[in-house]
Design a protein around this nucleic acid. Structure first.
Length: 832
DNA sequence: ACGGTGCATGCTAAG
DNA sequence: TTAGCATGCACCGTT
């Protein structure tokens, strides 16, 4: 500390309360700045503060802002424009985005022809070298445009003199490394390195790189084509480039739309913390890598990682784990291009064992192999389970592959998906490449030695970037469902739990319907999620519920009828003024509380086991819903597993004696054919009522019926999906105009279909189910005019109780709030 | 019966 | 249109 000198020439201070990082140095690391200079640098005020009298100031050609050109401290703050002049980084990037999108490099350049040029890349990424950026896509493209040529490779040739200059700066160690490089470079040709003066000038006039990172990193390939010496190579199938013929592609994958790299570059001073997706290190066919696999790591992380491992780390690629990857099978599918670029060539399907080290230095051995697949190969790493578990990563998290140079040792790391974007990136290449999470933390193995310092101001820019809704939708539809983490957290509850949490909308006024002396509350508004509470009974027999304050976590006794919103605090305890503050002590004996919770958990567990709730790995919660939606007919199978809970009306409480609550939990063996029990009789009666109501509604909506007929062709699967979604979330109204327009919701609304909530809008469902079952509305009308028994008989259904009614009638009956029929039927089916 | 292995299938995105 | 890849599933070996 004491020996530090501020590297600001105008300061040269030797003492500072805090030393800050400045610009990146060619020798690696960053300039050391005292607190005030560092602050100025961080705030992009360095040049304004210290260089205002110096030469080199120009104006942004677009916005007019003053730019200090040719200064290392401001090199990230401007760009040279294609149209001449300079532009501040924001303006330049806006222009650049378009050019990056539009320019692609024609043709494929044979790998072998670049061997001698590969050495240019032997620079550790962590060095943050200016020169690196010369080879960034942006630079490349800009250069191409600057010289008015579409031939990028020829344009790049012009850069070679610069390269040479750069090479001289490389350490002997790296040169040694370089000598081993022979892998491809799509950007340079050896047979044409004649400098073109003009171009050189142009190049030299190019702005200093915006990236802190090298976009072209050390070659991992040895002369044998191996990316790392430690790898075991078998057979003679060692090609300098690929193991298999490769498709001709563009030199670099088409950059994502809003060139995130560009965006992330825009902030000097914070760029070291920017998660930039960079084209990976050289390797056989690195140019084949899709942006989604480009390693995204901040240079800060990289530096730290390098420090931890005391080596130079070259990020190779990364992959967001799929369910399969993170599953028990222990197979991690490697992107083909990555496998071929950075792993040893293999020609036997069995592959080779490969040693990969984690950042703690622990070495893991995987089997690197491939499967023949569609005349191609599918590369996998086998035996990754221990490592995956060790890193505590799961589907949606990212594993990173890097290489230690020199030596070529592969390193595996991980990064937890901590926000939506990170997860979506896997599916949305258009937002990779720096348009990436500022909050994801890079993790090494097990524990994360690298914390992402941060959010950068470009995060805000990134947030503004439009993500195509269409794309989003497609991602969601993707069977590789990667739900945004936050949402996943929010929905990581079971179907049953979701039902338990449903509460009537606070603004909803229920209509009271009496059925067999049982009161039903009907709501015209869908329910909302409420707070989870525990219902208990006092010794006196008085029932109550316990709720936990979201603020102080104290439990409060509340009346059994209390309805709490999802977020509830003591201050909302209107029932007990003494306990309406978080300061008030908990009035529940800890032992009692523990007991209550224990009982609650036990009962839940029992329910789960009784109902064969999906085991780990099987769909639960929303997954179950989704599955149910897909399964369609089998939705009831799933729903049945939660009969006890899902038939509970939001306002049904322990002790409720309504017809719903008095049902047996499973219904097994309770209802015989021709059962005359209260439930069965009511089911029959209510079903008939339903039919009549349908008729009435039908007459009211006759005009719409024609259109409705069209809708009848809608496939049941889709409809049921809709239903399922509605059932769980129930947060939005159906958009179905046909059935909802008059808002007539006087039917008792327990949707047995899938044990949905009582407040689900059944109207649509009625029709849907009926239609799907081949029952037109007319049929229903007719049916409604018949005595129930006759109706059932006509439909080939034995006239029994609710136990054996047909599916469609049963489902309609279910609309009325009864489940026993369903239950019984399912039981019978099980028994059969 | 269970679990692992290898292949086939189908979806998606890239070209 | 096609390659890549996630995942389902049949087959096979082991318990």
């Amino acid at each position: 500390m004491g020996s530090k000198n501020c590297m600001n020439e105008a300061c040269r201070g030797t003492t500072s309360s805090e030393w800050k990082k400045g610009w990146s140095l060619k020798s690696g690391g960053f300039a050391t700045l005292c607190y005030s200079c560092g602050s100025a640098y961080e705030n992009s005020l360095f040049c304004e503060t210290f260089h205002s009298e110096e030469s080199g100031w120009r104006d942004c050609r677009i916005c007019g802002k003053r730019i200090h050109c040719g200064c290392i401290a401001s090199r990230y703050l401007h760009e040279y424009l294609d149209l001449g002049g300079v532009g501040c980084i924001n303006c330049a990037k806006r222009l650049e985005i378009h050019s990056v999108q539009s320019i692609q490099i024609p043709g494929d350049i044979p790998n072998g022809t670049f061997a001698t040029n590969g050495i240019r890349d032997v620079r550790p990424v962590v060095e943050n070298q200016i020169d690196d950026d010369k080879f960034s896509t942006e630079r490349l493209l800009q250069l191409t445009k600057a010289i008015g040529s579409n031939d990028v490779s020829s344009a790049l040739e012009q850069l070679k003199p610069e390269e040479s200059m750069f090479k001289t700066r490389q350490s002997s160690k790296r040169l040694l490394n370089l000598a081993q490089q022979c892998s491809s470079s799509a950007l340079f040709k050896t047979d044409n390195n004649r400098p073109k003066e003009g171009v050189k000038d142009i190049y030299e006039s190019l702005p200093q790189p915006s990236l802190n990172f090298s976009l072209t990193t050390p070659l991992g390939s040895s002369s044998s084509g191996l990316p790392f010496p430690g790898a075991i190579v078998e057979g003679s199938e060692q090609k300098g480039s690929f193991q298999q013929g490769q498709r001709t592609r563009h030199v670099l994958p088409k950059p994502p739309k809003p060139s995130p790299t560009a965006v992330s570059e825009t902030n000097k001073g914070t760029s070291s913390q920017t998660r930039v997706a960079r084209p990976p290190a050289e390797g056989r066919g690195r140019n084949q890598l899709l942006p989604r696999y480009w390693p995204k790591i901040t240079d800060q992380e990289l530096q730290q990682l390098s420090g931890d491992l005391k080596s130079t780390i070259v990020p190779l690629f990364e992959k967001i784990l799929s369910a399969s990857d993170a599953g028990r099978i222990g197979r991690l599918v490697l992107p083909k291009a990555c496998a071929e670029a950075y792993f040893p060539p293999i020609n036997q399907s069995e592959g080779i064992p490969i040693r990969i080290q984690d950042i703690k230095g622990k070495e893991w051995t995987f089997q690197f192999r491939f499967w023949p697949n569609n005349n191609s190969r599918m590369y996998v790493l086998e035996g990754v389970t221990p490592c995956i578990q060790n890193m505590q990563v799961q589907a949606g998290d990212t594993v990173t592959f890097s290489r230690i140079d020199p030596g070529g040792q592969l390193v595996i790391g991980c990064r937890k998906a901590t926000n939506n974007i990170d997860v979506q990136e896997a599916q949305t290449p258009s937002i990779v490449n720096g348009d990436s999470p500022g909050e994801t933390s890079f993790s090494g193995v097990t524990d994360n030695p690298l914390s992402n310092g941060g959010r950068t101001s470009d995060d805000s820019l990134q947030r503004h970037m439009p993500i195509s809704e269409k794309k989003k939708a497609r991602n969601i539809k993707n069977k590789r469902l990667l739900m945004p983490s936050d949402d996943a957290m929010e929905l990581r509850i079971t179907w049953e739990e979701a039902q338990e949490l449903l509460r009537p909308s606070p603004t909803a006024e229920p209509n009271i319907v009496m059925v067999e002396d049982h009161e039903f509350e009907e709501f015209e508004e869908p329910p909302i999620f409420g707070k989870r509470t525990i219902f208990t009974s006092r010794a006196s027999g008085e029932q109550e519920q316990l709720a936990q304050c979201d603020s102080c976590s104290k439990w409060r006794r509340l009346p059994v009828h209390a309805l709490l919103s999802a977020k509830w605090t003591c201050s909302e305890n209107i029932w007990d003024s003494k306990r309406s503050s978080c300061a008030a002590p908990e009035d529940i004996n800890p032992r009692d509380l523990e007991s209550f919770i224990s009982i609650y958990k036990d009962s839940k567990k029992r329910k789960i086991s009784d109902n064969k709730v999906p085991r780990e790995g099987e769909p639960s919660g929303l997954d179950a819903l989704a599955t149910a939606a897909v399964l369609g007919d089998n939705i009831s199978d799933i729903a049945e597993s939660s009969v006890g809970a899902t038939t509970r009306h939001p306002r049904h409480r322990p002790g409720c004696t309504c017809i719903v609550c008095i049902q047996p939990p499973s219904g097994k063996g309770k209802h015989e054919p021709m059962c005359k029990c209260n439930v069965c009789l009511t089911v029959r009666r209510r079903f008939k009522t339903l039919m009549m109501r349908k008729k009435k509604r039908q007459s009211e909506r006759e005009a719409e019926l024609a259109q409705g007929k069209d809708k009848a062709s809608v496939k049941i699967g889709l409809e049921r999906e809709d239903i399922a979604g509605h059932a769980l979330l129930n947060m939005s109204h159906h958009t179905d105009n046909e059935t909802n327009q008059n808002g007539n919701q006087t039917d008792l609304e327990e949707t047995n279909k899938g044990q949905l909530d009582l407040n689900c809008d059944p109207h649509r469902e009625d029709d849907i189910l009926a239609e799907a079952a081949g029952m037109s509305l007319t049929t229903l009308m007719n049916a409604a005019t018949l005595p129930l028994d006759m109706y059932l008989g006509q439909n080939g259904v034995p006239v029994t109780g609710p136990c054996l009614i047909s599916r469609e009638s049963e489902e309609n009956a279910a609309d009325e709030g009864f489940t026993s029929g369903r239950v019984e039927q399912e039981n019978n089916r099980e028994g059969g």
